[in-house]
Structure formats: C-alpha cells, structure tokens
Design a protein around this nucleic acid. Sequence first.
DNA 1: TGTACTGTTAAGGCTTTGCTAAGGATCGAG
DNA 2: CTCGATCCTTAGCAAAGCCTTAACAGTACA
Lengths: 226, 226
Amino acid sequence: MAAVVIIEDEQRIRELAAKALAARGHEVHTSATAMDGLQTVIGLSPDLVILDLGLPDLDGMELLKMIRAVSDVPVIVATARGEEPDIVLSLNAGADDHLVKPFSVEQLEARVRAVLRRASVTPRGSPVTIGALVIDGAAREASLDGEVLELSPKEFDLLRYLAEHTGEVITKRRLLAEVWRQPYGGSEKTVDVHLSWLRRKLGESAAESRYLQTVRGVGIKIVEPA
Amino acid sequence: MAAVVIIEDEQRIRELAAKALAARGHEVHTSATAMDGLQTVIGLSPDLVILDLGLPDLDGMELLKMIRAVSDVPVIVATARGEEPDIVLSLNAGADDHLVKPFSVEQLEARVRAVLRRASVTPRGSPVTIGALVIDGAAREASLDGEVLELSPKEFDLLRYLAEHTGEVITKRRLLAEVWRQPYGGSEKTVDVHLSWLRRKLGESAAESRYLQTVRGVGIKIVEPA
DNA sequence: TGTACTGTTAAGGCTTTGCTAAGGATCGAG
DNA sequence: CTCGATCCTTAGCAAAGCCTTAACAGTACA
C-alpha cells in the first residue's frame, strides 16, 4: 500500500505500530534513533513518517526540521501526554498530524489513513499522465503524443519526480535531495542544465513552455497545459 | 471547544466576556492580575489568551512579552479607546489581534473565532480562499475570479502572508520581519511599493479597495469583500 | 494650513535563470 | 583489460526579471 518509516525509541510501541501497519498491507521500516531515522527517510523516500518527538539522541523537533529541509513526506508526530505544547510547535514546523501516547491501534490506523488520503499517494509504478505526456515508472519510459522520449537516467528521474508532484513547485535543492540523493552538497546549476535538456526533448524552451514552468526565486513545477 | 484565558482587571468586563465565551462552548479561565494570568497561561497551555493591556500590577506589554517568551499561544489584546498607539506596539510584540474597549459580545466572538480558525491545524498546501481570491501555497499560484495572477516572488509572499492573517491588521515592520526576513533593517517604503503593485494586479487602488485595506497609523489588512 | 503618513511611478543595479560547450567519469561490450 | 559510447558535472556568458531606492503627489488629521 505505502512505505512507512517509524522513528521511535521505545521498542514496545515501535513493534506494536509496525505490526499494525504491516497488517494493513504497508511496507514498514523502523528506526530507534534519530540519526538512523533520517538516513532511512533520505534513502527510502517513504510515503509517510511517524516520528516520536522524545528521542534520546536528538530533539525530535530538530529531526523534523531536517526531514522538512529535504523532503515533503507527510509526518505524524507522537508525543507523550503532557507534552502538548510540543504538538503546536511541531505542527508549525511542518508536521501533518499528531498522536498523543499512549495511543490505540485504531487511532494510529485512522491517522495514517487520513494523512495518506490527504497526501493522495500515487501508487508507485503506476503511470502518471499529464496532458499528452505519459510517465511509466515501472517501464522507465516516458512518451509525448504517443512518441517515446529518449531520456537519460537522470532526465527520467527528474521528469518522474516532477510528474509525481504535478502542479506543485519544487525547489532545486529538493530536487537535488530527492532525485540526486544529495540533501546538502551538489550544485543547483546541475538541475538547471538537466531541466534545459528535458525541455528540449519535450519540444519546448523556457520562454515557450507547455509543461515545465519555472517559478522564479523558488523552483520549477510541471503543469497540465492549458 | 477551546481553552481560553482572560486576563482583565475590570470585573464587569471579565465576567461578561467569560460568560459569552462559555456560552459558545469554550473552557474559560479568568485572571484579574498579570501575575495570576501568567501562572494560568503557563500551567494551562490554553488555545487562546485575551489580555487587557491596562492591568494595575504590571504593564500589559511586559506580560505579553513574557507570554511570548514561553509560548506560541495566540493572544488578543484589549485596550481602552484612546490607547491606540499601544495597539501598534502590541502587534509588534507578537499579539495576534486586538479589541478596543468597550467592545460588543459579537465583536469578541468574531475575533476569537477568527484567531482560533487561523491557529487550528491547516493541512499544508491547502489553498486559502478570501472571496474570489484563492492563494495556493504549494503551486505558488494566486487567482482572482478564476484568473491566474502573475505575481513576482515577493508579491506572492506578501499576499500569502496577509491571507494567512485575514482580517488582522499587520504592521509594515512585521511584514518586513516575516516576509522580507529583516526584523530590524529595511525600509517600510519598500512594503508600500509592493502593496501598490499588488493592488494593481488585484484590480484595485488604495482609494477603491476590495481586499487590501490600509489602517492609517497601524498597517494593512486583507479582508473579505462586502 | 501644515505635518506626517501613504500611494505611485520610474530607473538602475543586482540576482536568478537559460543554454552551450568541454572535460571527465561510468558502464558495457568485446 | 581496453576501447567506445553515453552521460553527468562544471564553467561561463547572455538575457531576463525583480527589488530597492528615490522622488513626488496625494490624503487624513490635528
């Protein structure tokens, strides 16, 4: 159904949640520490993260910000009862929903379902269609007006990532993080170059764009042509 | 509905406000002094604070700063008519809205509703709507009457910030701090210029305004057109 | 009527972006 | 192991767009 990462130091809760979500058909990964969790999130690009704010090795809020810096993945934060102020802070920091421990399995499932629905998860591998443009992740093939495009690996990944976030502005830094797997280093100029190539192969230029719209000062988005 | 703390020394007003909000289903706590109020806010972590700036034991502005030092809770300040300069100061000190005494119960309820709505969990990326104006943060796109507006980055940020605080008067200094990320430097004239451009693109002028209303001596607010 | 605040316009400088080309890395075939 | 082809990154210049400053006009309020 969806890939979920659980970052939680208490083994009991971690396993309980993992079991519950796995039973619902999700692909579950768990981490007991913040650092391991960040690695997992970056490496896996999951569809959802469940994050305990009370981790031993790093303040949960910091981890949340780090995740937000590189990804838009939905995050549900969990806090112990009595730490309610943290909830407000975390929602401001970009969390999508929250749970107060101890929580029931039903509660957990309900929240997960709601957040995933809100995020409208695109099942992995199913083709995305934007106007006359079709991107088939499974076949690693993109076509325009029925014509198969000759894309390099990076070009395809870039196009697919944009297509999976149709209509949403994506920063170059986020593309470096998500497509290039370089959350910190890397030159944003590289993205520019690949975008230019992509545009050429899509039969458009920056001045005359059908699909790829640059949003000056922010990033790029792919849109359904008018 | 929500926990509200009222800090007000005049018994009549305090009880009137408490009664009105309790009738709307809120959990109301009252304090007659600044010190007691601060205790209550810290101990209770309420969803909203209504603070009279004219307290006998401590300058209300000081209390506001103390609250801000420990909490992000929305604060509505109340001042007696004639103390308008305080409004500007309090907005700069982090107040979310203000009331001028004497105020009607309807006014109070409206402000409370507005502030609570604003503070409630807004799913990220969900567009803000004000009349015929739609601001979509994820797409970084604003439209008026279904027509997409061509906004520069700063113009968009400015419009979005105002829209996220609909009905609330925002000082230029606060805009410089929040939108320009310049809490101290920067010229307020710059804000004027951008506002002018925004008005033009919204099809209005300062004289004939539908959305952007300037509040002389204080700042600017965006409102739902009549 | 004067003063302080606000509205508007124009212009210059600066940042961001678009695109081309070249060098080097990677990968597969033979 | 070597060659060849493809691809990715870096560098650099040109162009476009935006922000700020400045100057002046208009407006509310004492």
